[in-house]
Nucleic acid binder design. Structure first.
Lengths: 214, 214
DNA sequence: ATATTAAGTGAGTGAATACTCACTCTGGGA
DNA sequence: TCCCAGAGTGAGTATTCACTCACTTAATAT
């Protein structure tokens, strides 16, 4: 199924189409979908406006096409590299090490693709066509992987006996909160480099902020 | 200063203007600012389209006007009711009780005003005119209050010796993550009623998910 | 009653913009 | 060299939409 996507990706992706997609990501992320003009995307892509409509039936078509690169970039590395880290190598390593590596990895993936992520996340709030595939394809894969890891360590007794999905959500919350708050309000919330931040985040996630109950 | 706002609020707010603002919040939150039509806002408010422009110079003026109700709703109750809870009554109560009350209170404030919050948060990503007052007025007040509480308990030895702002951010992260994830993906992340969720969230915040290091 | 003012209206306007289409260019096959 | 297919173009078009303004209605004062 993933291979299918890649094939589709390679097949359809001429030089120009790729440039249009990249330009669209840039413009959409700066102005929002409805605030973006196809003329600006064309200029940004060094292409005539008409060319856009040779590749995409409508403006909304461009937006929907962003799902493919998003899925490719996030699902593939997740199931490949990080799944490997977590589920294989990670099984015998301490949880804090593995969680730190995982969060750091995801953090950088998000930061590297911020405009794409920002656009898809925000526009999916207004266009169901975007949200549906996310809920049906992307989310389940991510959740299955994380839930699996959490369950493994719950059963091993490493984690407390909270609901699995609750723990999964908490892990995601902490990363989400960091990304959102530190990039929206860098002057208030960006205190160190990502590596140190992640380290502290995982510490708190595992042990809390309360001074030892001993 | 707060009183100033209220006076301004009361003075300017005729019946019609209020109806237009409420309609705008609804339409903006459903379609986004650039996706919204003044004609639809007018219809939603049971008002002629021209009337909108008697009260607001431009469409963007409507958006900027949303800052006032937002600030009033969030700053005033925060500094009043919750500040009282936290700083006075809360000083001698256990931190978990106070945090639970605080988060529960804020959660419901956000949920009750979701369309307004959603609109302001998202549109501030695209319109600096919105973000600037948030950063200069709203954020500092919220942070001062929370930082104060955190500092108090850090000094008392209740909290570990993390950077104050880091703890503050973590508290906000956990609430933000819960609100965002459970409302964007209710089928994946809504597991219980808010009260129970908050309770677990504060537990994890204080003690972490790791099984006792004892 | 009448005048005065303010509040509200909605048809009209001009600018903007997503999309079309008749055309041009280019590279490779005969 | 000539031809052709199809990639690319950009001026043109039809529509949409924020905003205006000449007018109506309602309320209050005189």
């Amino acid at each position: 199924m993933v291979d299918n996507n890649i094939k589709e990706f390679d097949d359809e992706l001429s030089e120009k189409k790729l440039k249009i997609l990249e330009a669209a990501i840039k413009v959409f992320s700066e102005k929002g979908f409805d605030g973006s003009r196809t003329s600006e995307i064309a200029k940004e892509a060094n292409v005539a406006e008409g060319t856009i409509f040779k590749y995409f039936k409508t403006k909304k078509d461009i937006l929907l096409s962003l799902l493919l690169p998003l899925t490719l970039k996030f699902i593939k590395p997740l199931t490949m590299k990080s799944a490997e880290d977590i589920l294989n190598k990670g099984k015998d390593e301490p949880v804090d090490e593995v969680l730190k590596r995982l969060l750091y990895d995801r953090l950088h993936l998000v930061k590297k693709n911020m405009p794409l992520v920002k656009t898809v996340v925000i526009e999916s709030l207004y266009h169901e066509e975007l949200l549906v595939p996310i809920k049906e394809k992307l989310a389940p894969q991510v959740l299955e992987l994380l839930d699996g890891y959490v369950n493994y360590h719950k059963e091993k007794g490493d984690f407390k006996d909270y609901d699995t999905r609750f723990i999964t959500r908490t892990i995601m919350s902490m990363l989400l909160g960091y990304v959102v708050l530190s990039s929206a309000f860098p002057e208030f919330f960006s205190m160190g480099d990502d590596e140190n931040e992640i380290e502290r985040i995982v510490d708190v996630l595992l042990n809390g902020i309360k001074n030892g109950g001993v």
